[in-house]
Amino acid sequence: MTYDKLVEEAELEDIQIIEINLGRYKGLYSDNTIALSKNIETNTEKACVLAEELGHHYKTCGEIVDNKNINKIKQEKLARRWGYEKLVGIVNLINAFNSGLRGKYEISQFLGVTEGFLEESIEYYKQKYGTYFEIDSYVIYFEPYLGIMKKF
């Protein structure tokens, strides 16, 4: 999903997106407003940050910037997971495979995410499902590297 599509989704939810100087943060969410750092250089990275901030809108509540509080850490992870599933869903990985893509760079380009975001997503799925996941006629391996196989 592209940055522009995520912006459209935010607009449908009456979420305002502003770009400002956020210091060490890339994005923040509060009261139907998402602030994105104006230092983010590419729309690909903006999409990754925006997906997480939309995750905050849908899944978390309150101020959670304190990363020493266990409940706030859990809320941060919940928002990130929402972003992973939004941009790097299992079906999206299968679509990349069916398009002939195999490497992380090619897949991240196809999905419109950074390689780092793709790697974090794969790690999330590995924690969620284990070393592999079966769906329909596909097996998706998360370890030792991302691999997808179609069963016959």
Results as ranks from 00 to 15, higher is better:
I18P: 00
E19K: 15
E19M: 11
I20V: 13
N21F: 12
L22S: 11
L22Q: 03
G23Q: 13
G23H: 05
K26A: 14
K26D: 11
G27F: 02
G27Y: 09
L28D: 06
L28W: 10
Y29N: 02
Y29H: 03
S30L: 06
S30N: 06
D31N: 15
D31W: 03
N32E: 08
N32A: 02
I34T: 07
I34W: 12
I34H: 03
A35W: 14
A35H: 07
L36F: 15
S37E: 08
S37W: 08
K38V: 10
K38A: 11
N39Q: 07
I40Y: 03
I40T: 02
E41I: 15
E41S: 15
N43V: 15
T44E: 14
T44W: 09
E45P: 09
E45F: 11
K46A: 14
K46M: 15
K46D: 12
A47H: 02
C48T: 13
V49P: 00
V49A: 06
V49N: 05
L50C: 09
A51Q: 14
A51M: 13
A51V: 12
E52D: 06
E52R: 00
E53N: 05
L54G: 14
L54V: 02
L54Y: 02
L54H: 06
L54S: 02
G55T: 10
H56N: 10
H57P: 04
H57Q: 10
H57G: 10
T60F: 13
T60H: 14
C61L: 13
C61F: 08
G62N: 08
G62F: 12
G62A: 02
E63T: 09
I64F: 07
I64E: 00
D66N: 09
N67I: 11
N67K: 05
K68D: 12
K68P: 06
K68C: 12
K68T: 15
K68E: 12
N69A: 00
N69D: 15
I70F: 13
K72W: 01
K72L: 00
K72Y: 04
I73M: 09
I73K: 08
Q75L: 04
Q75A: 06
E76H: 02
E76Y: 02
L78M: 15
A79Y: 07
A79K: 13
A79C: 11
R80P: 03
R80F: 07
R80A: 10
R81D: 11
R81W: 07
W82M: 03
W82P: 00
G83Y: 08
G83F: 07
G83V: 04
Y84I: 11
E85V: 08
E85W: 13
E85Q: 08
K86A: 14
K86C: 05
L87A: 10
L87C: 15
L87K: 09
V88G: 00
V88A: 04
G89M: 05
G89C: 05
I90Q: 01
V91R: 09
V91I: 10
V91D: 11
V91G: 04
V91M: 05
N92P: 03
I94K: 00
I94Q: 01
I94M: 01
N95S: 14
N95F: 05
A96S: 09
N98Q: 08
N98E: 11
S99R: 05
G100T: 14
G100P: 01
L101I: 03
L101N: 00
L101V: 05
L101R: 01
R102A: 03
R102E: 10
